[in-house]
Amino acid sequence: MIVVDSLSKHYGPHVAVDSLSFTVQPGVVTGFLGPNGSGKSTTMRVIMGLDRPTSGTATVNGRSLADHRAPLHEVGALLEARAIHPGRSAYDHLSAMAATTGVPDRRVREVLDLVGLSSVAKKRAGSFSLGMGQRLGIAGALLADPDTIILDEPVNGLDPEGILWIRHLLKGLADDGRTVFVSSHLISEMGLMAEHLIVIGRGRLIRDMTVDELRQVGRDGRVDVTTPYPADLTRVLLGQGVSIQSTDDAYTLTVTGLLAAEIGDRAVAQGIPLHALVPREASLEEAFMSLTHDSVEYQPAAAA
């Protein structure tokens, strides 16, 4: 479990994280979502003890990382791809990390197998592609079999197969009862990967919600309705606060101001057949934009 409490981090006059509090629970994949520059990486670095908070705390399983006997066994992290000496082999890189905590060499081979890098384990990491570097970083995160896994933008540079693999992997880790915390600026990816979301903007918490709740945000009250008698239906539905637009398809109307149920009931009462009745959902992207549009760090300057 990760607990971030009133965390602030300033870099000179720049406020990267601003009184941020949230808890990441074990057993589900939690997405950490926000526009670029919103403070996701900074927060993760503070959790990992790499950056000192200006105020507030970040703890993993009740303690700051430095207070654990075997930090690598508490938290495994991938904070940036290819954070490795280009002249060192994947095996030696992991072996050096493993040595600090007494993780056996057998485990190094195990995680190399797990991420699919066994056949290139002895090659210089400088020759690795971004995707391979990403896999090596994930191997490092899983090295000491940690209860908590923190991954910063893990799907960057991965091919579709790799992305699918990560989804399965994270799901499996969460199902084991581990705490899995994954950042991304891509909401669509989060929708597929995570169940819970911490949404931040300009270093502040915007929402702590489930992915399903975000989908609700996306509902904008429009309903698409298809009928062979659009003129009749329009007459039945029109009223105060209701607007109806025709669409490219002559038999489909877009209705605003009525619930799908109300539309169906009125149509039945008048004997008008309906062929389709579909509440429209905005995409997750649109839902996300509506949550964060006030807190984008670098918005294009508005025309004066």
């Binding site: 006997r69 690598l72 993780v103 992997l169």
Partner: peptide
């Protein structure tokens, strides 16, 4: 990559793990 999650392939014995 191996299909199974690391959890299902047996967990690392954590006794003796320390810096």
């Amino acid at each position: 990559p191996v299909e199974s999650s690391p959890g299902t392939s047996g967990r690392l014995d954590s006794t003796g793990l320390a810096v």
